[in-house]
Design a binder for these strands. Structure first.
Length: 534
RNA sequence: GCGCUCGUAGCUCAGCUGGAUAGAGCGCUAGCCUCCGGAGCUAGAGGUCACAGGUUCGAAUCCUGUCGAGCGCGCCA
């Protein structure tokens, strides 16, 4: 096509089944420069093409589209190939990169609420997808374990006489709320809290011990939630803000030495062209801003981990911050040109009032509450599938108003629908095995439109995964898997497998095997379990 | 004030590197279990793609403006 047309034919999946399998609008685009009617250009291209071995005769349709329909044997062969491929058509990327992906990042002494769901589940999915295409993925859970709030937390603990190691995370959150209120109400307490921050930074042993216990209590709570969410994060991935404390003086020294950072109004700041406000690296009181921590993290991820690509799965309210931090990191040389960095910004989950959830104001819904609600509708693996799919299947950038009822549905375009398709095809294969039919390795007959449609979708799995690895948009995988599950359902209604005989039966069994593998693998990449029965 | 994101069917959302009659799920209406699992399948009704201009052979998609919603913008993280 490229050779005949002279330009990229932009071969795309057909928008409708009656247009075949693939379509190209290349003739429409060439018509103007050639000064001839589009259909005439199309006819010329068709005449010059030699595709008889792969396609049915190419059709010129509508205003000048070219419609391609693969030969049944070619489609059948692609499914046979997929069956023989341990990776089910997912190929390794041309070059294997080291990808550092920053996600989840809850705050110490706060329960994870539904807003953390997106950060955790999206990051987990991207991590799986990037690994699947052959990259070395390093997850970093940048928990909020440092900052001025620990001054008031520690002071509140001391004034309440609490044993920290006996706290649950929910109790720690209540403590946080009390400390906040106390801080606002009492100037005397606020002063003690500020002094306590200084003690914490100076490494005073008792303060550090209480701080450390708070972290342990919190991490235990996070881990319980991670286990329930069935995500890949472990303690090895923990790299909280405090991790970078020792790096901060050097980072700041580098910035000053290179002249990137300057003192302004008492604070050390970086002015970047195109930004209407500077980035604060060190505050007037000498404390480091969180931008300094992010710069230190970038520096470590590049220099120590050897990252080729940095990914931040963080909500869109922080878009400006990351744009600025990344720009500064480039200026400072912490982030070389050959290392890419992307902020995967996802929309906020809002309360029923359309405003953002706030732990401090008590409007945030704890994640455990959502999981409990879902498990009243279905068993845990199904409930979790509903929740994850609901969150992954819409575009990243949109905010949405949190609605439990929407997230726990199990019919229609949902996670459980995908699981059901998997369980159903599994049932057919189980019976086939019980009947001693074995595992056919080749698709030899592909007559029915329903089985052709299914085969065509199966052959696209690899490119869809590639696209998600590239675009970092999990909902594209969701859309694909829903289409696949739908195609399977149609196939299931229209193409009897066990009731067929001979080559047709073997061929359909092979299609079932391939579909089961792709569904299971696709669900795995989303972080969703694929039960054999449900 | 400046910036970012969003506005598509009654509801929730795809489609946005410009291309054929704008798709899906839910809900609604009407069908489908002598047949491998009905969390399913088939059909139907339902849309000035926020609004107004512009570019183009062609605009939901690109550009400009307006309206509406959310978020962000030097010492919280």
């Amino acid at each position: 096509m490229q050779a005949v047309a002279g330009i990229d034919p932009e071969l795309r999946p057909a928008t409708k089944p009656q247009f075949g399998h693939f379509q190209s609008n290349v003739a429409l685009r060439l018509a103007k420069s050639e000064g001839r009617p589009p259909r005439e250009v199309a006819t010329r291209i068709v005449a010059a093409l030699d595709l008889d071995d792969v396609c049915e005769p190419v059709e010129v349709a509508g205003p000048g589209f070219l419609n391609f329909r693969l030969r049944a044997q070619v489609l059948a062969g692609s499914v046979t190939d997929l069956l023989a491929d341990p990776a089910a058509g997912v190929g390794a990327a041309a070059t294997s990169q080291t990808v550092v992906i920053d996600y989840s990042s809850p705050n110490v002494a706060k329960q994870m609420h539904v807003g953390h769901l997106r950060a955790t589940i999206i990051g987990d999915c991207l991590s799986r997808v990037l690994s699947a295409v052959g990259h070395r993925v390093i997850a970093q859970n940048h928990i909020g374990d440092w900052g001025t709030q620990f001054g008031m937390l520690v002071e509140q603990i001391l004034s309440d006489g609490i044993e920290v190691d006996a706290l649950s995370l929910a109790e720690a959150e209540a403590l946080y709320l009390r400390a906040n209120a106390h801080f606002k109400a009492s100037e005397e307490f606020a002063a003690r809290a500020r002094d306590r921050v200084v003690l914490l930074q100076a490494g005073e042993p008792d303060t550090r011990r209480i701080w450390q216990q708070l972290i342990e209590v919190s991490v235990a709570g996070f881990n319980a939630t991670y286990a329930r969410l069935d995500v890949l994060l472990t303690d090895r991935d923990l790299a909280g803000e405090s991790t970078y404390n020792d790096d901060l003086p050097q980072v700041v020294a580098d910035l000053e030495a290179s002249g990137v950072a300057v003192v302004d109004d008492g604070a050390l700041v970086v002015f970047v062209d195109g930004f209407n406000s500077p980035m604060i690296v060190r505050k007037r009181d000498g404390g480091y801003g969180y931008s300094a921590t992010d710069l230190a993290a970038i520096r470590r991820r590049v220099r120590t981990f050897g990252a080729d690509r940095l990914i931040y799965v963080v909500g869109s309210p922080q878009a400006f911050h990351f744009e600025q931090v990344l720009a500064v990191a480039r200026l400072a040389g912490f982030l070389p040109p050959e290392v890419s960095a992307e902020h995967v910004a996802f929309g906020q989950i809002q309360g029923p009032d359309g405003r953002k959830f706030s732990t401090r104001e008590g409007t945030a819904v704890p994640l455990t509450e959502l999981l409990d609600a879902a498990e009243q509708q279905a068993s845990p693996p199904i409930a979790l599938a509903a929740i994850k799919y609901a969150d992954l299947s819409t575009g990243l950038n949109k905010d949405y108003v949190f609605d439990v009822n929407r997230m726990v549905v199990t019919v229609g375009n949902t996670g459980p629908y995908l699981q059901y398709a998997h369980a159903r095809v599994n049932q057919v294969l189980r019976k086939a095995e019980a009947d001693g039919l074995g595992q056919p390795a080749a698709v030899t007959v592909l007559e029915d439109p329903a089985e052709q449609a299914l085969a065509l979708l199966l052959s696209r799995f690899g490119e869809v995964v590639d696209e998600v690895a590239d675009s970092l948009q999990p909902h594209k995988l969701c859309t694909y898997l829903f289409d696949l599950a739908t195609a399977l359902s149609v196939f299931y209604e229209q193409c009897p497998v066990l009731k067929s005989a001979g080559d047709v039966r073997d061929s359909r069994l092979a299609i079932c095997l391939a579909t089961r593998r792709v569904l299971a693998r696709g669900l795995y990449l989303l972080g969703i379990e694929a039960p054999e029965r449900m």
